[in-house]
Simulated scan of single mutants.
Amino acid sequence: MLQKGVVEVERDITFRLAAEEDLERIVQMLADDVLGEERERYEDPLPEGYLKAFKAIESDPNNELTVACHDKEIIGVMQITFTPYLTHQGSWRATIEGVRTSSAVRGQGVGSKMINWAVDRARERGCSLVQLTTDKQRGEALRFYQKLGFTATHEGMKMKL
């Protein structure tokens, strides 16, 4: 039995590059969790910074803002950045960031399908490594990524400016 606001998702999930008209839904998903509600601003109109960031991502051939759709509804989002490195013998790597699924489909395997799709996309682009970070406060996310084959091999560090 479904709860109100919950969408049952079967196997029909498609992936495509995000379009500008998807931006409101994307920001809504980014803001829809404990950490996101502190750092995102989902309001009408959206803050200008979101559109500027979208345009920069869209114009960069090494960045892909990808949405996961069930029928025509956007149920997930992630950004994949492809970066050349001198390390690892000059190979490319993919960084997966900003992964969110709609609260209506969490726990239904959508996140797994998204990450597996992103790993396949990295292979298509010739990457030898896929990396991602998750906030230390997101213990469930850490276990989720480990279940998908990711290992915590490095200690990540950030500096807010």
Score class of each variant (00 low, 15 high):
50 Y>Q: 09
113 K>L: 06
75 I>E: 04
115 I>A: 00
87 T>K: 15
70 H>G: 01
52 K>W: 11
61 P>C: 10
96 I>P: 00
84 P>I: 15
64 E>A: 08
72 K>G: 13
114 M>W: 15
60 D>M: 14
109 G>K: 03
59 S>Q: 08
119 V>W: 09
71 D>L: 13
90 G>M: 06
47 P>N: 05
80 I>G: 01
71 D>H: 12
88 H>G: 07
57 I>H: 07
118 A>L: 01
105 V>I: 14
103 S>C: 11
105 V>A: 03
75 I>L: 11
48 E>T: 05
103 S>L: 12
97 E>M: 06
94 A>Y: 03
48 E>K: 07
58 E>S: 03
79 Q>E: 07
94 A>N: 08
89 Q>K: 03
66 T>P: 00
85 Y>R: 13
67 V>R: 01
101 T>E: 07
101 T>G: 11
83 T>E: 12
111 G>M: 00
65 L>C: 01
81 T>G: 10
87 T>R: 14
61 P>I: 13
96 I>A: 02
65 L>E: 01
111 G>P: 01
74 I>K: 04
100 R>S: 04
62 N>L: 11
69 C>S: 12
112 S>K: 07
100 R>T: 02
99 V>G: 03
54 F>M: 09
78 M>F: 07
66 T>A: 06
50 Y>R: 10
84 P>K: 14
94 A>H: 03
58 E>F: 05
85 Y>E: 15
82 F>E: 04
50 Y>M: 12
77 V>H: 05
113 K>Y: 10
59 S>F: 13
48 E>L: 03
119 V>P: 09
78 M>E: 00
100 R>G: 01
46 L>T: 10
109 G>F: 06
48 E>V: 03
56 A>G: 14
91 S>L: 08
60 D>H: 15
45 P>T: 08
105 V>R: 00
104 A>H: 01
77 V>I: 13
118 A>Q: 01
70 H>F: 09
95 T>A: 12
99 V>C: 02
49 G>I: 04
64 E>Q: 08
117 W>A: 05
99 V>L: 00
87 T>V: 15
60 D>G: 14
96 I>Q: 01
100 R>Y: 04
90 G>R: 06
81 T>P: 04
98 G>D: 08
82 F>Y: 12
102 S>D: 09
110 V>H: 09
108 Q>F: 07
